[in-house]
């Protein structure tokens, strides 16, 4: 299960973003995962709580949206949404569609933060806990 490593990377970039935005608390993270990025939503949600503990992300909701898998169909000359990564075929004409356009992404799309910016100096924040790779 590599979702713990992924969750730690996610918490890291969320912490960096919270520094940039001068907020010490994050209410929610919106994450987009494609069917071909190799991440299982449930495992990510489970790991996320562990990775977030002791950081400004602790307690934030993890909102996962499934990104569509799209590929270009040469026969139809059009981009298509592919229903399943198990069959990379055009849903309209059935031709194989090797040219994947999207579906590999694993992205922190947005964060919900308290509306009042917190200008607190970083030294006043709760101590951040960074995980070393085990």
């Amino acid at each position: 299960m590599h979702e713990l490593s992924i969750a730690m990377a996610l918490v890291d970039i969320a912490c960096e973003a919270s520094d940039r935005l001068h907020v010490s608390k994050i209410d929610a993270l919106h994450v987009s995962i494609g069917p071909l990025c190799g991440v299982v939503e449930e495992a990510l949600a489970f790991s996320f709580e562990l990775a977030a503990a002791g950081t400004p992300v602790e307690g934030a909701r993890l909102v996962v949206q499934q990104a569509p898998l799209t590929a270009f169909c040469d026969s139809c000359n059009e981009e298509r949404t592919i229903p399943s990564p198990q069959h990379l075929r055009c849903p309209s004409c059935g031709a194989p569609t090797p040219a994947v356009r999207s579906g590999r992404e694993l992205e922190l799309v947005a964060m919900e933060v308290p509306d009042v910016p917190d200008r607190a100096d970083s030294s006043e924040r709760p101590e951040e806990k960074r995980f070393a790779r085990s």
Binding site: A9, L10, I13, A14, H30, E107, A110, V113
Partner: peptide
Amino acid sequence: MSRIEQIRQNVLKKND
């Protein structure tokens, strides 16, 4: 009340 901040960042950016 929360506000939404767009981030749009690849989670595996550091590795990539």
